[in-house]
Design a protein around this nucleic acid. Sequence first.
DNA 1: AATATTAATCGTAGTTTTACGATTAATAAA
DNA 2: TTTATTAATCGTAAAACTACGATTAATATT
Lengths: 104, 104
Amino acid sequence: MADYSNKEAQIAGYAKALAHPARVAIIQLLLKKQACICGAIVEELPLSQSTVSQHLKELKLAGLIKGDITGVKTCYCIDKAAWNKAKKLLTGLFSIPLINENCC
Amino acid sequence: MADYSNKEAQIAGYAKALAHPARVAIIQLLLKKQACICGAIVEELPLSQSTVSQHLKELKLAGLIKGDITGVKTCYCIDKAAWNKAKKLLTGLFSIPLINENCC
DNA sequence: AATATTAATCGTAGTTTTACGATTAATAAA
DNA sequence: TTTATTAATCGTAAAACTACGATTAATATT
């Protein structure tokens, strides 16, 4: 009956950012530094440039990445602070002990 | 250019299941066993019975929970195997070392 | 047998997401 | 200065998501 907690909303927010394979792929590319320039990311994905741009925008909106424009190119990278926060929240959820003494 | 990997799709799938605060709340309730019967879950959320049922269905579809009907009531609980798989995939993503020697 | 309870499903409306091509703005190269 | 490159944004269409009330099917209770 009560409203959601801040934590729940934040977890959901970060989960939402990772709720598309393209965005998971982008994050992995950035983590492993196999790509960083927008154009290179586009080449790695089976999507059009505009669609990839949209996914990058969503990741940026969620705070997980930031973009750095230099000249005509844009370099993206993980936002360390936000990434660590997401990690903390998500791993926190998964580390709740699961003792199955339930009905099913 | 190539297609997504299985792993990426699975991560995205589990993330999607957690991409709504109501579903995060449900998972937490089940983990902490503060609720289990559908009706009790409904009482804990600021949503109608039908909407909660829909969220439960999505979590079931993602494999994270299972429902056990006994009489007129339904008891839900975490699917241990799937939950552990999700945990492994998500924590795996978050445990990729983040060395920021990038452009930004 | 009639009524109540529980939870799934149906129908529906509004919103959001996803995807694309086309366009634009900015910088780089010729 | 003209042309090319890069990436964001716009416009748009289709699909998916979210929410609700109403209905339904099943079991419990009276």
